[in-house]
Structures are given as C-alpha cells and as structure tokens.
Amino acid sequence: MNRTEILDELKKILAPYTLDKEQLAAVNEETDLIRDLKINSANLVDIIIDAEEKYNVEIDYDDAEKMIVVGSCIDVIESRLKAQ
C-alpha cells in the first residue's frame, strides 16, 4: 500500500470525526488533525483505534503521539504495515 492509498483510506477513517467536509476533501500531508480539521483531541484515540482495525496493525502509545498531522499518521501506518 503506497502513501496515496493510505491517505485515501485515512480520509474515510477521519470522516466521522470532523464536521469540516471541505477541509477533509482538501486533506494533504500537512493537514493538522486538531487545528485544520477541528477534531476534538479526545477523539484522536478513537481515530487510532479505527486505524488499527482498518489496517490490522497495532499502534503503540509512542507512535500514537506522533499522529498530529496527516503526513505523520501515514508515516506511522506505513511503518507498522512494513513491520508485519
């Protein structure tokens, strides 16, 4: 799975947690989950759980803390997928 494919899937995971559909449609690697997508910080946990389920990977607490912008989310998911 390349970065573009991961991004497409990630957008689906993020969708239920943001009301800003325009920002979601325009998501790029620099998009900040909290600042740009206005996601409630408490929901980051839910996004990580959804991503774990989607990709069938385990994201530990240290990796989870890196998932601030879309690009870093993709980094974490990519590295977890490669580690499999």
Binding site: P16, Y17, T18, L19, N40, N43, D46
Partner: peptide, 8 residues
C-alpha cells in the same frame, strides 16, 4: 446533535 457527536 452533530454528526461527530452522533457517531459513537
């Protein structure tokens, strides 16, 4: 309620 609140 918002879609985000509704979800979950």
């Amino acid at each position: 309620i918002s879609e985000v609140t509704f979800h979950g």
